[in-house]
Design a protein around this nucleic acid. Structure first.
Lengths: 192, 192, 192, 192
DNA sequence: CCATAACCGAGACGGTACGTCTGGTCTTCAA
DNA sequence: TTGAAGACCAGACGTACCGTCTCGGTTATGG
């Protein structure tokens, strides 16, 4: 029995159209301007929505971004972790895809923006992992490799993934020139 | 006579007093308010300096912070990497010191602020590593361990350090509760 | 159905309270500081209003002053032109009242400020005459005198008034000491 | 050689070159930008002179302008009052020349600028009359006309001139369109 | 079939900080 | 000692957003 339905309160219902317009506008502006140049007024204008409508449903800029993140409107085309059975080769390939992605013109500030957003908001920090599919996908592959005996049984998987992604993030923050062997070296630092 | 001195240009010389006052004010405010609540006007007021003097010598907030960073005015008391001969134990101890440092009240947002600053500015991103003494000290210890045969000869040292610090940074961004074995697990993820 | 109402534009309506606070603050500051020491920030602070509210409705300092002028908030107590039937005596009396007004302490720079304002802004220049009541009141008296045969039938009234007030203004700009017969001499220069 | 010169004080003497450069630069900028957009820094730059050199010798912007005025660098080509024996015709002609002068493109703000300068500075206000040649030339003509019996013997000459010029000034401040009979009407307002 | 209540757009409001500009003072160097 | 150069403090400029609020208008229940 859906007791939850309860007394449906009177009045107009939340406009799904407005909700989506806001999140999509956020995605567009995030891609072009980056996180810190994102403004509530800018989102409202881009979405054709009033500021009040945003403030009614989200508490802050970072909350809007966090929502856009879990709706998959910020990073539409994420690389997936391949599965060839060779964990080392798979991680290198995945790392390379990530490096290629951020090396593409227009994606310069993508990592920086995401990290900046994570710095401002606990929510984003937490969801970043989830939304990136990191925990879900990579961790699963790592655990499979552990089970297959390719990696030590007592490997702290979460920390391993964190180190891998963290290495990638710091590399991006340094804006190092894209070295061809960067992916291979990073993985080798962890799997030696 | 040192002709190298060249033609010293005329006019009053830059006030070292003002320069230091700005950087020290930046350090104080950074500690108390964090990077994003830092304002040029606030720094000017705290330093007893006019805004124009800041804009004359620095191009942006992040440039000021970058300078304060390399003058060691942002993180006065950084943990040092111990050297007992056991590289694993040393890294764990160092990691633990770092975790303890950011766990102290008032240092909550320290890592977040630094990373946020690094997101905004290439300079800060680059100098963050240098200024943290990471490259200098940790790398030296790692290389010594490689030379001593404790670590593989072909270990990519830079990437190793990046993964270690990156893991620490992501851990901080997630605001995970401080687990007692966090340091040990992170190091074990890399040295397995 | 009141079709006349038209499409009343949506959104909050302009705050009459804020509008008046700005103009009254302008009047107060104009009296104490004069036109050129008047600042938008000063007006905003005095009025308890944000700068943006001023910039939203007025294009410049002079526009604010022009508005304060036509709302009669700059020169609250202006002398009126008497009407005894003797046009010469009336003009002398009025001139004397004006001279006395600007001779009062605190009113030193009043004329200078008004003229300075008129120099900067076409609007103020035009409204200055209107607002001073010059055109309306004095011109009417002159025309009555013309009709009564006290003055020539072809007297260019506008130019006559302009010369009278202009003489007064130049006298004020010269900061001449207040001569007792100044009013009488000025009128006699015109009515000889 | 005048021994009276006494003990010529030591050190370099004031540079006449710099003094003139400042006044000429002031004249140029005054013509192009008007009084209120004139800045000390702008004059210094235009003159190739340091700010300090200006502040050492003049107390304010208006003092520089006042000096430029009496050196005849602000209004190089002033109309002169003709002398045909017919005082009415002469004044009309002179008035017309003045109106034509300010009607020329580029001279739009000339009167406004001068009056604005006079508003700021007593010195300028006083010298304006002198420098305009008003007192010297016009007054002489008026007095001659009085002596010739063309004007009443008891005419207050100073006030008469003031009314004439004041009428012209107010006319300019109003930015009225240039009427062909403006000069004639203004003079007729005074000589009726 | 209203009345109520919550929605929506628009946009005004008091604020904070921005980055620029000018003013007036000062310090340093060269002549 | 002067003039040129230019750093310094001070503070106003006009702009951009912030987060809150008040409007007039639009749905959707529920009495």
């Amino acid at each position: 029995m859906p007791a939850s339905a309860g007394v449906r309160r009177r009045g107009a219902v939340r406009s799904e159209e407005a909700r989506l317009a806001v999140l999509e506008a956020t995605g567009r502006l995030f891609a072009t301007q980056g996180y810190d140049h994102l403004t509530i007024e800018g989102i409202a204008a881009e979405a054709g929505v009033s500021k009040q409508t945003i403030y009614r449903w989200w508490s802050s800029k970072s909350a809007v971004v966090a929502d856009a993140l879990i709706e998959d409107l910020l990073l539409p085309d994420r690389p997936v972790v391949p599965d060839t059975g060779d964990i080392r080769a798979d991680l290198i390939a995945w790392m390379q895809d990530l490096l290629d992605l951020v090396a593409q013109p227009g994606n310069d500030g993508l990592v920086r923006s995401l990290v900046a957003a994570a710095c401002e908001s606990t929510d984003i920090g937490i969801r970043l992992n989830d939304a990136l599919g990191i925990t879900a996908t990579v961790s699963a592959r790592i655990e499979a490799a552990v089970a297959a005996g390719q990696l030590p049984a007592d490997l702290p998987v979460i920390e391993f993934v964190r180190a891998l992604v963290g290495g990638f993030v710091l590399h991006s923050l340094e804006r190092s020139e894209p070295a061809p062997e960067a992916a291979e070296r990073l993985v080798r630092a962890l799997l030696h």
